[in-house]
């Protein structure tokens, strides 16, 4: 449900960069969306169609690259893929891990005319 405001923010980022680069049209938006982000790709597509209307991004192709959830152990430094949200280090029993990918929703690049 929060995809409405999330898509608004995404579009704002896209239009800001398109305008800075004096674009007349945005043809493609390349995004990275983490596995653990609660943003749903289908909802972003749905809202984008409505919000993008009458902007230079109308009709742009949305490309999502999905990233796996990965973490780094705060004890031994091991980097590992988090399976079923189990954040425990496979090698040691440190009680601190840091997410290194899988949480992001970022606009990587845009293709413009």
């Amino acid at each position: 449900m929060h995809e409405l405001s999330v898509t608004e923010s995404m579009l704002a980022v896209v239009l800001k960069h398109a305008e800075t680069n004096k674009a007349t049209q945005v043809t493609r938006i390349n995004m990275v969306l983490g596995e653990m982000s609660s943003v749903m790709e289908e909802s972003v597509r749905f809202y984008f169609e409505i919000l993008g209307k009458d902007t230079i991004a109308e009709g742009a192709e949305l490309n999502f690259q999905r990233t796996k959830l990965r973490a780094r152990c705060g004890g031994c430094g091991k980097e590992f893929e988090v399976v079923e949200f189990d954040f425990r280090c496979p090698d040691c029993d440190a009680n601190k891990t840091e997410i290194i990918s899988g949480r992001e929703f970022q606009v990587e690049s845009i293709e413009i005319n």
């Binding site: 999330v6 923010s9 995404m10 704002a12 980022v13 896209v14 960069h17 398109a18 680069n21 674009a23 995004m31 943003v39 992001e104 929703f105 970022q106 606009v107 990587e108 690049s109 845009i110 293709e111 413009i112 005319n113």
Partner: peptide
């Protein structure tokens, strides 16, 4: 033309 953005949607 492809323009690099690298901006998080939640940054704002």
């Amino acid at each position: 033309m492809e323009i690099e953005v690298l901006e998080g949607v939640f940054d704002a």
